[in-house]
Nucleic acid binder design. Structure first.
Lengths: 228, 228
DNA sequence: TGTATCTATTTTGTATACAAAATGTATGCA
DNA sequence: TGCATACATTTTGTATACAAAATAGATACA
């Protein structure tokens, strides 16, 4: 991946972080990355610092950069904050979306459905992320977007398992989420803020329940220890 | 102001931007600043890029950094977003504030009242900014704080005139805002989320009305053109 | 006079060498 | 063996030289 290009380097790092290719907590060393991307340390450091500002990485002085971790605290803050921001952004998106943005959103959703049918979890995560990022761009509000972007980073990382359905019931949830996307596009096209807020909260509830279910699965049979 | 120190450089720039010492839209040149602060261009650029990520500056590729401007669009977004974020942050602050944070908040408020009585508008802006920044730290929510900080940057810059009361009625508004701060501290100490949300929205309304009044002052007497 | 194009200057972007800090390792001593 | 300290190595931070891009100015031409 020798790119000699800051922007490509940045995009690659973002993708690897969002898809958990690079795990939360992993440390990134400048010399190593410098070689990997074919950039000298100066521009590379600028990429790192930008990503840190956006919440992908966490910096410690005289120590390296590490991929932001997802501890119990940030989970709590995440669940506390996400629905409010998502709803507010969705409302503004329905009010402000431009034609070409809607076209792009449809294209992303087309891709998302395609990779969902193919069960390509990695690309599902990427396209789903882009879908919601685009809604953020439609909202076009510089005061909300930094919070939205931070939420999406962790949401995408947490949801990786969501996109890897293990049974037919879980597969249904993916289709449901996918259909909700379609509904959101429709609400945006009709400039119907109330509709998109409702859909967004449903979409959130679906994702939240799936994440919680993963974090706290049904307990094993308590008789398991007793050999028959 | 030769400091040879990134952190001091950063703080100085922030203060100068918040107090409108450096006007919105002003361009910052690397060589000039490098000399001013006694830092070489490499660490200076890092400061600039960090400030850009936080919303103080706006970067253009192969062009310099400029202080983020406040156009009609961002004003609109500001008024749209501020009350929601302020209220949410205030609630969380009341729920999560730690003792030493409350002590610091009281100290800042003491300073704020002092400089208010002295009519030192520059320091009023700085201490008021710090007051609200501290409430953000109490809320301790990494998903909300970037939005809050962006709002505060522009709020502080817009409010400069608010702190320069031109008549006794406007001076009263400053005391009212100052008293609201005291009420907020009390609500935080009592862990009373409902109270601080109410106060925060009142505080917001006061500030908003003052800003709007400044942006759209009472029209001049329409007979003014007719010479008597 | 107005416009276009070429050149000089300024300004930003990148690479690299060097300095400082942190980490890991070995050695000495109780 | 356990611990502390000194030293070597690794890693981050800063300065500076050079490259690339943009801007400003001058000159040629319509």
């Amino acid at each position: 991946m020798i790119v000699k290009n800051k922007e490509t380097c940045r995009e690659d790092l973002i993708e690897r972080i969002l898809t958990l290719d690079i795990e939360p907590g992993a440390v990134l060393e400048e010399a190593e990355m410098s070689e990997r991307y074919g950039l000298s340390r100066t521009p590379l450091r600028e990429v790192i610092q930008k990503l840190a500002g956006e919440g992908y990485l966490t910096l410690a002085k005289n120590r390296g950069a590490k991929v932001s971790s997802m501890d119990i605290d940030s989970m709590r803050h995440f669940f506390q904050t996400a629905p409010m921001i998502y709803a507010a952004v969705a409302r503004l998106a329905a009010e402000n979306a431009r034609k070409e943005q809607i076209a792009e959103l449809k294209e992303v959703q087309r891709m998302f459905r395609m990779v969902s049918e193919a069960g390509e979890t990695r690309f599902m995560a990427i396209h789903n992320h882009r879908f919601h990022e685009l809604i953020g761009e439609m909202a076009d509000n510089p005061y909300l977007s930094p919070s939205l972007k931070r939420l999406l980073i962790d949401h995408t990382r947490m949801s990786q398992k969501f996109y890897k359905p293990v049974n037919s019931k879980e597969r249904m949830l993916v289709w449901e989420a996918c259909d909700q996307h379609d509904g959101m596009i429709e609400a945006i096209e009709k400039s119907d803020p109330a509709a998109i807020v409702d859909l967004t909260l449903e979409h959130w509830a679906l994702s939240r329940d799936r994440i919680e279910k993963f974090a706290r699965p049904d307990p094993l049979d308590i008789d398991l220890g007793k050999t028959g």
